[in-house]
Design a binder for these strands. Structure first.
Length: 444
RNA sequence: GUGGCCAUAGCUCAAUGGUAGAGCAGUGGCCUGUGGAGCCACUGAUACGGGUCCGAUCCCCGUUGGCCACCCCA
């Protein structure tokens, strides 16, 4: 039965669908991006290994309540930035806006308190916040994250900061560490009141937005970028002057540890963070433009695990935004290992040679050589062009002539020198050349 | 969430109230025998929806997306 009758009217072409677009704030990580991403992941893993962190990955989806309890109801993250929904079974779920809550949940749920303490774990993966996107700010963004759970001593904070510093050193990015202490439930409320009293005397100079915040989350006034507030903040009472004795000792010890290893940091009395669970130590990692170019931050969260239902467990951690680091690596032109290039490209001329080439591809692949081909291209020129574009080290050429006398041509793509060898010996010859090449490229 | 700027081919950029053009990239050919600056040809676009108009890629409105600032943060 004919599919089309001759007199069928041509089907009216359907209205062209809208060009598919990314969901707002999402982004693709393309093959050309991966050298930077892999570079970062590799450095994260290296540093994690040096400092004794093991990898953990928790789900992207958690109960909404986990985040509201952990992060705080009056934070922007919880109030307006979470991707939350009710699933088919009526569960209230959210895409994770940060790592720590999920890690703390896993710590409790898997009884990690019975492991030798502290438990040090690292992670990297995507997170979601429903904010207005702009440069360095996405709705799906990646973070790497380091957590030390089950340790109250300031030495843990210090070493965590040093690990973060070691990482940025390996990433070859100059950064500043801004450090502060925000106290604990004993001393923070008192400081908070002192702060409120101070700002009340300045009400006439404050914007409506700032006044609103004064009642909701006065600490956050401290790191405002509003010009009027920056001026007001210059004389604001500092948290470090109102710490209780324990918090003060903790902070002093932290700084002493850092001084001990001659680590340079910046004391930042106005540094507060947008998440409620922080206690005592808070810090941020800044690029060259200061707070505006923060790569990440972290701090201590001694009450979080108890808060969400575990046994009281002190902990400290930090996280950084990977997209921001990728952007900075590109901007600074930090050299990263290039995309993988195949060792060998097989070019074939003619049907018979192509069959042989297919076999050769499999043989070499088994041998552990990375091989590329372009079986569907016919001309030798276009095949070599392809070999060149994908950066193969050597091309193998097999055509009629070689087929007849059981040989193959090995062409060095770097200098164009080529040699005809017995096809039986091709694996051996290739292995030899690759080894030679590898030896030459290793810096002395 | 608020405000501003913007959207033409895969990329970078032209042009026009009256048939949208280039470079690069891609594909094919010259070429069953040699890539990293050869020659030739081809493919490919006005984000989406509506309005004004004889006619809209251009003017207007809306939507979507991007960038920037605010906000916030990673």
């Amino acid at each position: 039965m004919p599919i089309n009758k001759p007199d069928d009217k041509p089907v009216k072409p359907a209205k062209k669908a809208a060009t598919p677009q990314l969901v707002r704030g999402m982004h693709d990580i393309l093959p050309t991006d991966w050298p930077w991403w892999n570079f970062i992941f590799n450095k994260v893993e290296e540093v994690a290994m040096c400092y004794g962190y093991e990898r953990i990955e928790t789900p992207i989806l958690e109960k909404t309540q986990l985040f509201t309890r952990a992060i705080g109801n009056t934070t922007d993250i919880v109030e307006k930035e979470m991707f939350s929904f009710v699933d088919q079974s009526g569960d209230h779920l959210s895409l994770r806006p940060e790592y720590t809550a999920g890690i703390a949940r896993a710590y409790i749920e898997h009884g990690m308190l019975s492991l030798p303490q502290p438990v040090k774990m690292f992670s990297y993966g995507p997170h979601f916040r429903h904010e207005r996107p702009q440069a360095g700010r996405y709705r799906q963004f990646w973070q790497f994250n380091f957590e030390v759970l089950g340790e109250t001593e300031a030495v843990a904070d210090s070493q965590l900061i040093l690990a973060a510093a070691a990482l940025f050193e390996r990433l070859q990015l100059p950064v500043t560490f801004a450090i502060n202490s925000v106290g604990c439930p004993d001393c923070r409320p008192k400081y908070r009141q002192v702060l409120i009293d101070y700002y009340r005397t300045k009400r006439s100079e404050m914007s409506d937005e700032a006044k609103k915040r004064l009642t909701r989350n006065p600490l956050r006034l401290l790191d405002s970028k509003e010009e009027a507030l920056i001026e007001i903040n210059k004389n604001a009472p500092q948290c470090v002057d109102h710490l209780c004795e324990n918090c003060r000792n903790h902070f002093v010890k932290l700084l002493e540890h850092l001084d001990e290893v001659e680590f340079t940091y910046q004391l930042s009395p106005n540094l507060v963070r947008g998440i409620d669970y922080y206690t005592r130590t808070v810090f941020e990692v800044w690029g060259e433009d200061g707070a505006a170019s923060a790569f990440g931050g972290g701090g201590r969260y001694d009450n979080l695990i108890e808060e969400i239902g575990g046994r009281a467990t002190a902990a400290v951690g930090f996280a950084c935004g990977i997209e921001r680091i990728v952007a900075e690596l590109k901007k600074k032109q930090v050299p990263v290992p290039p995309r993988q290039r195949p060792d060998i490209f097989i070019a074939s001329l003619g049907e018979a040679a192509r069959k042989k080439a297919l076999k050769l591809f499999e043989d070499l692949r088994r041998q552990g050589v990375t091989v590329a081909e372009s079986f569907t291209k016919s001309g030798l020129k276009s095949q070599l062009e392809t070999a060149n574009k994908i950066g193969a080290s050597f091309a193998l050429v097999i055509g009629q002539k070689e087929l007849m006398d059981d040989t193959i041509i090995i062409r060095d793509m770097e200098n164009g020198i080529q040699e005809t060898v017995d096809i039986q010996k091709v694996s051996l010859e290739i292995a030899k050349r690759l080894e030679h090449k590898a030896a030459r490229s290793v810096p002395a």
